[in-house]
Design a protein around this nucleic acid. Structure first.
Lengths: 171, 171
DNA sequence: CAAGATTGAACCTTCAATCTTC
DNA sequence: GAAGATTGAAGGTTCAATCTTG
């Protein structure tokens, strides 16, 4: 059973529970599953390409980019954790690894003795400069170009509406 | 695309490497980042809802659904691993956990002595029946409805083109 | 010797507890 | 006492090695 009601029509059955329809039509189910599969494959490909070219993962790259864009190429641990969607402890350990490889470093926060600042090292900046062009080409080749210039705006709008739906139910 | 026409050129610089453009326009970058963030939030929400309602994760649920749809509610480990996008060892361990909870079980493959069959138990089927309606409603509420019925076809087509691009470069 | 599945080791992430500073 | 960050313990995933069967 699961996601779909057998062989049936493209119209979902009536709603017994009052909140919304209880089943996905075949085409809805197809899109949903395809979304999961394609997203996974896309991320895997970008990660593989990046690792092969630079030795850093997509997640590491995201951290380096965030630091590079920050004023002074430094960010508070908490802010950086949010930006890269990691837990505080998760970021602590990722910065540990990046620091061990010489790509990032730590400084004490001047304004708040409790805080730490993660910073991008010269070596990290160098890696970013070397890796960015190929990575950007990959994003374009596997996502932006296939979606098409005309549909990018539609995609952005849809993403915005999903965001709103998520926010609406947020307690 | 009506996304933006902002300060820096919306047209990417010329291409020094011959493969494609080297930089993302601001609007391209915005869509790309928003995609990452929205996908993460959507999966997190669906996972949280499912865990709260049933105690199983989205990944566990996916395994149970795959088994439920299979003939005899059973699948070879290798086939199931591919279906749910897990490594062979990853699936072995996930089935271990589901079996420990009584939601899945193992049988020897009748046709090939090397193989194992994972099966859905009656208890697993029961959990699925109880969990599916709410989960389906969540998928509809946070994804299908916000995207909109008219745009679903476009989304599916775009996903198909991304798939093709991924396949094209696959060696 | 190849294929299917499992096991051991390593890695990465999170939660809970802790330590320091405000 | 609360906030920011780190550390210990636990959970889950993958790679490499192993075991069994074709």
């Amino acid at each position: 059973m699961a996601l779909e009601r057998g062989g049936a029509a493209e119209t979902a059955p009536s709603d017994p529970t009052g909140g919304g329809k209880d089943w996905l039509t075949p085409s809805e189910q197809a899109v949903w599953r395809r979304l999961l599969a394609v997203h996974a494959r896309l991320m895997l490909r970008l990660d593989e390409d990046l690792r092969a070219a630079t030795g850093v993962s997509l997640g590491d790259y995201d951290v380096l980019v965030a630091l590079d864009e920050a004023p002074g190429r430094s960010l508070r641990m908490g802010d950086l954790a949010q930006r890269v969607m990691l837990s505080p402890s998760g970021l602590t350990r990722r910065i540990d690894r990046l620091a061990a490889r010489g790509l990032a470093s730590r400084r004490d926060c001047p304004s708040d003795g409790r805080g730490s600042l993660a910073s991008l090292t010269a070596e990290g900046r160098q890696l970013l400069a070397a890796a960015a062009p190929a990575h950007v080409r990959s994003v374009r080749r596997y996502l932006l170009t296939p979606v098409g210039p005309g549909a990018l705006g539609d995609l952005d709008a849809a993403l915005g509406r999903i965001c709103d739906a998520l926010d609406a139910d947020r307690c």
